[in-house]
Amino acid sequence: MRPTRRAPLPGEVTLPLKDALRGVRFALRTGRRQLDPLAGRVPIPLAGLAADVMGQVDQVAAGVEAFGSTTAHRFLDAPGAADGAPDLPQPDAGSGSAQRFAQTVYYGLSRALSRLGTEDALVSETLAAEAFRSVRDRTEPALVVEDYAAEIMRALLDRVVAGRPPGLTPAVPEDQGAIAVFAVTLWLLVERAGGAEDEDQLLDTCTDVARAQGRALTDALPDTAALSALLAACHRVI
């Protein structure tokens, strides 16, 4: 008998759920790593007990991992999920565009941060979708594309879309977060050369260009017009 497919949940529900699942998984992984060296300090008679407890933590983590990936997979497979070349959704894009944008930003930021050397970052799809909606709801349709991209970039940065849960320090360094968001915004801006384009390579290229901006990016961050000009300059060399 074919399994019945559940009706996809709306983005307002799935995005916070995915964030929550990733948060739990992240906390368990981090906690496990922090406990590991402590377990070695437990006196010999209690070492077995400590090992049992750690084993149970691992089982919980594995369970959450399995549940999280199955559930997230179901959400990702839902209609409206990211497919085709990533791009900047137009301000007048229909329903589902915020969810698609959030998934793309999640993927892009995770990869860009990893290339910059930050592996354990939590990227919030909920906040990414919120950032897009905030710009969409106030943007005039005739805006220059780089201006629009700069507005979206500012909204992503203001909401600290890439971070770490409180208490799990160190946080993602602010400059790395800004470089990663700049890289993803560029990635969404760049026109594709056709079917041969490798999206991961393109994102890496955008990350390298973003990283090379250094002081120019730091100086442009507070000013949307300056950000737009920098995005346009970098757009031309990719």
């Binding site: 050369a193 290229t205 390298d208 031309r236 060399v237 990719i238």
Partner: peptide, 19 residues
Amino acid sequence: HHLTPLPVRRSVRRLRWFK
């Protein structure tokens, strides 16, 4: 050259083409 129809002097100033 397939990446862009621009002349080489312009294409070479794009990182994707260079790579």
